[in-house]
Each structure stands twice: as structure tokens, then as C-alpha cells.
């Protein structure tokens, strides 16, 4: 692609085409394909805004407690594996890229490219969840899940947790500070859990899309569904970019 910003009309037919000859995917209450595409695109954006406000409540809680219990948050953050976190960020960014490529393939009507991109996105999404599962199971092993026999020993006595201790040489936390690491992990599980839930929903839809794309859908010029799903997928990516910065990288030095 020498020129990466080609401007082509989105619809397969000129605007203002007669009512009788509209394509099958044009719903009855719309006047034109553009109107329909615009509408669903804008609706998707509004939906993403509600998603943003949904996470907004969690971010607010996070910022308050981080300010209150900074030391506990640092200690809690040291429990997260920055390698896994970085890897997951890379995986998610790549999946965002393949998704964007998928949208481009759909727009330029490349069926096999579209299917390939969707499958790659699907695999990367699963990879992200796989890594997340590894991380979660580490937390479960150490009893760092709030509400389920939450265990403070990694914070009261860091040496009992040699892997982490080797890296950060954390000082033992007093009990009253160590107790607040539970809030950190509550927020960690809430935020990443909500994020993972969105991923799972996204992967489900991706599976459906792969199935349909193999049957030849989305390359007729009517790419609204792919585009909107792309928006959703990128939004999840953005959320993760912030989660990574806030949860993993509090204080690593």
C-alpha cells in the first residue's frame, strides 16, 4: 500500500439510490446505506462511552485507595509479574493490530485476509486470557484472592516469598498496612476481571465472525459489523493499557 489513506465511498452504490434497489442489508427504516453505517457507528461509540464510565467508577476507587494506602499498593503491585504483564500488553497490542488489519481487509474486500486476521486476533485474545489464567492461578495459590482466606504472609514476612523477595527486597510491612493489600487485590481482580469478561465476550463474537467470514460475509462493502467490533476490541486494548500502567507499574524500583 503505497498510499495508506485511500478515500473510497463506503457503500457499493451511489448515495441517494432509489428505494427499490437497495441492498439486502439495508434495514427498512433507513434511507441509505451511509445513514445506516453512520448510525451504527455512532451508536457503537456511545456504547463505548458508557463502557468508559463503567470503568470510571473502578478507576475512581483505585485512585482514592492508592492515595490512601500507597505502601500497600506498592507491595501488592510487586506481587504481579511484570514479565507476564508486559507480554500480555504486547499480545493485546498485536491483537489490536491484527483486528485493525482485519477491518482493512474487509473494507478492501479481501476474504482470505479477513479470515486470517480474525483468526490471528482470536488466537492472540485466547493467548491473553491464557496468560491471565497463569497469573490468576499464582494469586490463588498464594491466597491473594480477597474474601477467600486472604493470606498476608507475603507482606508481613516477605522472605517467605523468595521469588518476589529476591527481586525487590521488600521490607516487612506492619500489619495495619499489610491488611490494606487486600484492597489492592480487590481492585486488581475487579478491574482485570471486568476487562477479562469483556475479552471473553469479544472472543465469543470473534468466533462467530470467523465462522461468518469463512462463509463470505463482510466483504460486500457492508462492513459495519466488523468495524464496530473493531472499535470494541480496540477499546478493550485501551483499558488494558491503563490497567497495565496503574496496576503493574506502581513502583518497580
Amino acid at each position: 500500500m503505497p498510499n495508506n489513506q485511500a478515500i473510497v465511498p463506503a457503500a457499493s452504490e451511489p448515495a441517494g439510490a432509489g428505494h427499490n434497489e437497495h441492498p439486502s442489508y439495508l434495514l427498512h427504516h433507513f434511507q441509505s446505506v451511509e445513514q445506516q453505517a453512520d448510525t451504527s457507528n455512532f451508536a457503537m461509540w456511545l456504547f463505548l462511552l458508557t463502557e468508559m464510565m463503567f470503568f470510571g467508577g473502578l478507576f475512581t476507587a483505585y485512585l482514592i485507595y492508592r492515595n490512601w494506602y500507597y505502601l500497600a499498593f506498592v507491595a501488592g503491585s510487586h506481587q504481579l509479574n511484570v514479565v507476564w504483564g508486559t507480554l500480555n500488553t504486547v499480545v493485546l497490542i498485536c491483537s489490536s493490530f491484527t483486528m485493525a488489519m482485519g477491518v482493512w481487509c474487509a473494507e478492501t474486500r479481501r476474504r482470505s485476509g479477513l479470515v486470517l486476521c480474525l483468526i490471528l486476533t482470536f488466537i492472540l485474545g485466547l493467548g491473553f486470557l491464557g496468560i491471565k489464567t497463569i497469573e490468576y492461578s499464582e494469586k490463588i495459590e498464594k491466597h491473594h484472592v480477597p474474601g477467600f482466606h486472604y493470606n498476608l504472609s507475603s507482606f508481613l514476612d516477605p522472605a517467605s516469598d523468595p521469588e518476589i523477595f529476591k527481586e525487590y527486597h521488600d521490607k516487612p510491612l506492619p500489619l495495619d498496612i499489610a491488611r490494606h493489600t487486600e484492597l489492592y487485590f480487590s481492585l486488581y481482580f475487579l478491574m482485570t476481571g471486568m476487562h477479562a469478561l469483556h475479552m471473553i465476550i469479544g472472543i465469543g463474537i470473534l468466533g462467530f465472525m470467523i465462522f461468518r467470514a469463512r462463509a463470505g460475509a463482510y466483504i460486500s462493502g457492508h462492513v459495519t459489523f466488523v468495524e464496530n467490533f473493531g472499535l470494541y476490541w480496540h477499546f478493550i486494548d485501551i483499558v488494558w493499557i491503563y490497567l497495565f500502567a496503574l496496576l503493574y507499574l506502581i513502583s518497580r524500583h
Binding site: N3, Q5, A6, E34, I93, W104, T108, F244
Partner: peptide, 30 residues
């Protein structure tokens, strides 16, 4: 009403920018 199609060139560039940002932020945190 013309629909802009962003091509792979831009996407690849953005991908590398994002990866660079990730590396940078991890480094900065240490």
C-alpha cells in the same frame, strides 16, 4: 460521506509505536 480507509502502512507504524511505548513505560517504572 466518503469513508476513509486507513491502510496497513499506518497500522504497522502505530503497532511499532505502541510496542515502543510499552517498552518505554516498563523501563521508566524501574
Amino acid at each position: 460521506h466518503a469513508h476513509t480507509i486507513v491502510g496497513p502502512g499506518v497500522y504497522v507504524a502505530i503497532l511499532f509505536a505502541l510496542l515502543a511505548g510499552t517498552v518505554l513505560t516498563v523501563w521508566a517504572s524501574f
